[in-house]
Design a protein around this nucleic acid. Sequence first.
DNA 1: AATATTTTGGAACAAATGTTCCGGATAGTA
DNA 2: TACTATCCGGAACATTTGTTCCAAAATATT
Lengths: 191, 191
Amino acid sequence: MARKKEFDPEERMEKARDLFWQKGYNATSMEDLVQTMGLNRGSIYDTYGDKHSLYLQCLGNYAAEKLREHKEAALGTSPMEKVENMILSVVEATVNTGKCCMAVNSTFELATVDQSVHSIINNNWKDIVEFFEQLLTDAKEVGEISADKDPRLLAEFIAANFTGLWQTYILSKDKKQVEKLAQFLIDMIKN
Amino acid sequence: MARKKEFDPEERMEKARDLFWQKGYNATSMEDLVQTMGLNRGSIYDTYGDKHSLYLQCLGNYAAEKLREHKEAALGTSPMEKVENMILSVVEATVNTGKCCMAVNSTFELATVDQSVHSIINNNWKDIVEFFEQLLTDAKEVGEISADKDPRLLAEFIAANFTGLWQTYILSKDKKQVEKLAQFLIDMIKN
DNA sequence: AATATTTTGGAACAAATGTTCCGGATAGTA
DNA sequence: TACTATCCGGAACATTTGTTCCAAAATATT
């Protein structure tokens, strides 16, 4: 009946995502995307819609994938150990890849003026905070953190600290320093 | 010998700065700047150079002013009280104006790809951390924080947390929540 | 093999972008 | 007053931008 797509839409979107991730939304041109995705302009518009729509899909894809990765990184025999490993895995991923969080980049570039972007990031943020909250609630029940702690507040605090770690990494480019800060955060939560 | 400038370069630069602050670098066009600054294109180029150069001047102006404001906000009879007031003043400024830190916006939009921007922000960051470090060193000597604490690390931790607070504010738009987080941070530092 | 539907490559477009340039206006100096 | 260095307004420029369109190619079904 008709031709098949000669490319994998998901795979090519990830190429676009990586470019947006690196350069930001406004600094990425359609020409950049054509080159990087290896697709024709028409194919991009047919498959993903316009630039903004493509970006939202990339951001959504990123958010979903990151949430999955975070949950996978929460390994351990106790709740607090899971929290700790999750934090450490974020730091490791950052210093290994040299890339920060696309959602955070997007927060500061677009979320204040773009409602759609705000919505995607906010939902992702909430998911992450809720996951932390659950772990910390568990930790509280097991007695790993003291009874007077508020799991919700603690979860928000940890999530907020990620952003601080990324900022620190961008400016210092110092793996050791970021690791020290992360360890300090973990110590603060524990007692 | 010649005409005088009919405008105050510093004052007009602040108009440009506020626009960059709000929209970011790439999303701000030269046309936007002409409108907002109320100047002719030629006058802008004559006075500040090109767009990028103007941006750097705005960012530098912002950084210097913020550092000054931070130091002014560090009021109190004891070192820790000064630290506390400084943190609270940042939160107040954020929720009152509805604007986050231009330098942080800039970090995530440009600092990874623009060396000049990176340099300005990094220096400003260092200045702020050093100021915190001094206060915390004082606090340690006075016995307001325990002897086993590392003022430098603590200072970096606080600075990093600002970024987290701003991110939280952008996403939640919730004044109360940001204030709660800030108070939580203060409590954590204190004990 | 013929058909129908979709993809592909690239030309084409209008609008927006950053930047330059020039004539006329202006005001301090000689 | 005349001069001249500088300013202002706005036209003009070449690129780059995001987007659309079309003819040719391709393939799954009939």
